[in-house]
Amino acid sequence: MSNNEKIASFIGKKALRLTSLLIIVCFASFMLIQYSPIDPVRAYIGEMPVTAEHKAKLEAYWGVNTPPQEKFLNWAGDILKGDFGTSLIYRTPVIDVIEERFTASLILMGISWLLSGIMGFALGIIAGANQGTWVDKAIKTYCYALAAAPTFWLALLLLIVFSVYLGWFPIGLRVPIGVTADNVTFFDWLKRLILPAITLSLLDIAKITMFTREKLIEVLSSDYVLFAKARGEKGLDLILRHGVRNVALPAITLQFLGFSELFGGTVLVEQVFSYPGIGQTAVSAGLKSDVPLLLGIVIFSTLFVFFGNLIADIIYEFIDPRIKQQEALV
């Protein structure tokens, strides 16, 4: 198979996969909510006093009396046109809310993704290269503890130490919901970003460190490292020449595969730090039964995870030459 053919078939397969995935996710989550005890009219009305006439109008608008299949088709048709409906809690189009909030979250996630990737990789290399020594044990213990720590608890601790006691950063809940990013200065915004970003990266570090460590140990016990040793290579030079080179790609791949957990982490971290991102919005939408917004977030977060996996697949299929070698051996 030529390279172009391979790329074409890869793109075709992935496009098909994405389409089917989106259809299934939309249908399943729509039906799940549809048959749940959530009442969209009551969610919309909230505490407002309304007349019976108004209520009937709303019921017609939300299609309380139309069959679910028809409702789904209407909703899906609107989505295909780019209309995700109107958010009940923000009273603005869902797509606008998602755009603003997801951008904020992407910045947060992007920073912590990079931080955790770089630091985790470095720690993993240090631990793996010193396997069995106290350095390795210390890093391992640190990772185990981090991996076992509840995300939101870690966030709370950092908040207690840095915001309450040291007063370096603002304590959350000071900016009311609905204030857009335009209303805060860049410095305010940066201040609000640092702690969440650090918390989020701390959580991811454990995973990438342990993975890098294990991969490095695997590489160090490989035939080619044995041969390199037989040729007099040793120490840091050996690790840099063979270790880092062979561990980097799998580690980067793992980072891309971690988008799902990154999103989960950001939901909790945003909640603790009141960071106005997609995670916090998702929680509000869920708690206040804002169905259009919640479904919109589900779709976009699925896309987010899908693209992480896609990049990982691209690295695996097209960039890493070891795959070709394994194929050649088979």
Binding site: L21, G286, S289, S301, V305
Partner: peptide, 21 residues
Amino acid sequence: VDLFLSIPHLLLIVLISIGIG
């Protein structure tokens, strides 16, 4: 398996638990 792994885990739990009521 792929379907369940395609939605962020935490969001999926939230979605299901809301769906159940």
